[in-house]
Write a protein that binds this DNA or RNA. Structure first.
Lengths: 241, 241
DNA sequence: AATCCATATATTGTCAACAATTATTGTTAA
DNA sequence: TTAACAATAATTGTTGACAATATATGGATT
C-alpha cells in the first residue's frame, strides 16, 4: 500500500549502477521538497537544472512536471516554463474545504476498522513529532506535521484516499508557506495526539470533530496578505549534493 | 468552474481551422468514451492510431496517456503500450469505498449552501435521464447516470472534489462495464430523484443516507466473475468520424 | 497437426537537433 | 539616471530519426 520507492536493482549484475530513475522518483523528490518548505512557491523549475540534478533527459523531467502540474503542485506556463505553484486565497480555501470534508470522514471511519499495526505506527509518528519539536528541528517538524495526516489516510487502507490526501497536504504546505503567520503555529502538539486518542478509544464523533477543529485552526492561522518569495539553488534544495 | 472545452478560435482569421488540440482535449475524449462504455477495459490504445485520430504528434498523445494513467483510467505497460484500465475486484472496492465516503459527505454538505441555479440544473439533468430511459437510449443513459454524480459534486462549488469525483465516476464506468450484471441496472430512476428531493427539502441526513444506499446498490449489483472483452475501431469509437 | 525456433515486422522508448519564444544584456536617446 | 529599443543569449516546444523491445509470420522438426 505504501508508495513503492522502486530502488530495486533487479539483479546483482550492476555493482552500484545509476539505478534507473523514472518520473515518479522526480515527482517524489519535489513532493518532499515542498513538504519540507525547501521549495518555495513560485520558484522556477528549470528543465536544464532538473536534468542535471537527477541526471536524466529532458523528456523525463518534462513528464514529471506534467504530472505535478496536474496535481496543482506546479504551474506550467507556455513558453515560460514550470514554477512551483503559488496558490491563491481562493485555491487555499478550496484545499482546506476539501481536506475538511475528506479527512473528517476518514477520521470517523478509521475508528471502526483500523489495524493495530497502524495505530502503533501513528503513535510512533507522533513521538517523532515531539522529538522534532523539542529539538527545534523546524524543517523536520513541518514535514512530520503534514505526514501525520497522510499516514492517517493511509491507515484507512484506501489507496485512492491516501493519494488525494497526500496531494492536498502537499498543497497545504505551499499555502502555509505563503500565508502562514508563524511557522511554529502549524499543528500544535496535542491536537494530533488528541485525534489519535479519540480513534483509539473508539469515539468516531470525537475523532471527526477534532479533525474538523484541527483543520479549522490551521486555516484560521492564515492571513492572506503577504507573499514571501525566496530563492535557492535547486541542486542543494532537492538534497542531491 | 466547468471544464473549458477551449474551442475558441481566437480570431476570425481561421475559417474552419483545425483548432489547436492539446493534451486535455484528448483526455476529455477518452474520458467521454469510457463514460459511455464505448471504450471497453483492456482495449489497446495504440499511439499511432491516436495520432491519426486526433491529428497530432506522438508527443501529445504520449502526454495525454501519461495523465490518464495517473488517474487510473489507463494502464501503461513498458514497451507494450497503453491499455484502457481493467480494474481488479480489489480496485473496484476501493473506488466504491472512496466514492461512498466522498459523495455521502458531499450530499450532506451541499444541502446547506446549494445555489438555486444548480438545483435547477440537477432537476433538468434528471429529466434528461428520464427521457433517455423512456426512449431506450442505453448509451445516453449510462453517460447521464454517471454525470449526475459529477454534477452534484460540481454543485458543491469545490473544484478539487469535482475532479476527484469525476475520476472515480469514470473508473466506475469501467467497473460496471466489467462486472455489471445487467446494463439496465445502473442507477434506477427514482434514486437520483430521491437524493435531489432530500437536498431540496433541506434534509442532510436523508441526502447522505440515500447516497450511501444508492452507491451500495450499484456495488451490490456487481459480480466479480466474468470479464467481457470487446474491440472496435478507435477512430469511430472516439467519435471523430 | 502441433510445437518450437528464427526471421521479419510493428510498436514503443529515447535522444538529439531544430524552431519558436522569452529573458537578458548592452546601447542609445531623452 | 532613467526609459526605450536592438541584439544576443538562454529556455522551452516540437519534430524526426534511431535504438530497443515486443509481436507476428513462416518454416522446420517431432
Amino acid at each position: 500500500m505504501s508508495a513503492p520507492v522502486e530502488s530495486g536493482s533487479n539483479e546483482m549484475t550492476r555493482p552500484a549502477g545509476p539505478e534507473r530513475v523514472d518520473e515518479n522518483f522526480i515527482v517524489e523528490c519535489i513532493y518532499n521538497a515542498v513538504m519540507e518548505h525547501r521549495l518555495a512557491p513560485s520558484t522556477k523549475l528549470s528543465e536544464l537544472k532538473l536534468c542535471d540534478t537527477f541526471g536524466v533527459g529532458r523528456m523525463r523531467v518534462r513528464r514529471a512536471l506534467l504530472l505535478l502540474s496536474n496535481q496543482g503542485i506546479v504551474d506550467l506556463e507556455t513558453n515560460r516554463g514550470a514554477f512551483v505553484a503559488s496558490p491563491s486565497p481562493a485555491e487555499a480555501n478550496e484545499v482546506f474545504e476539501a481536506r475538511t470534508l475528506l479527512e473528517s470522514s476518514i477520521a470517523r471511519h478509521v475508528v471502526a476498522d483500523i489495524r493495530p499495526g497502524d495505530l502503533a505506527m501513528l503513535r510512533q509518528h507522533i513521538s517523532l513529532e515531539s522529538v522534532a519539536r523539542d529539538n527545534n528541528k523546524g524543517v523536520d517538524l513541518i514535514r512530520l506535521s503534514g505526514e501525520f495526516h497522510v499516514k492517517l489516510a493511509q491507515a484507512s487502507g484506501n489507496t485512492i484516499l491516501w493519494r488525494v490526501v497526500r496531494e492536498l497536504v502537499t498543497r497545504s504546505s505551499l499555502i502555509v508557506g505563503l500565508f502562514g503567520a508563524s511557522n511554529h503555529m502549524v499543528c500544535p502538539e496535542n491536537e494530533h495526539s488528541n485525534i489519535l486518542a479519540a480513534i483509539e478509544c473508539g469515539e468516531p464523533d470525537d475523532a471527526e470533530a477534532m479533525m474538523i477543529e484541527h483543520l479549522n485552526r490551521i486555516r484560521g492561522g492564515l492571513n492572506f496578505s503577504a507573499p514571501k518569495p525566496q530563492e535557492g539553488d535547486l541542486a542543494e534544495i532537492l538534497g542531491l549534493t
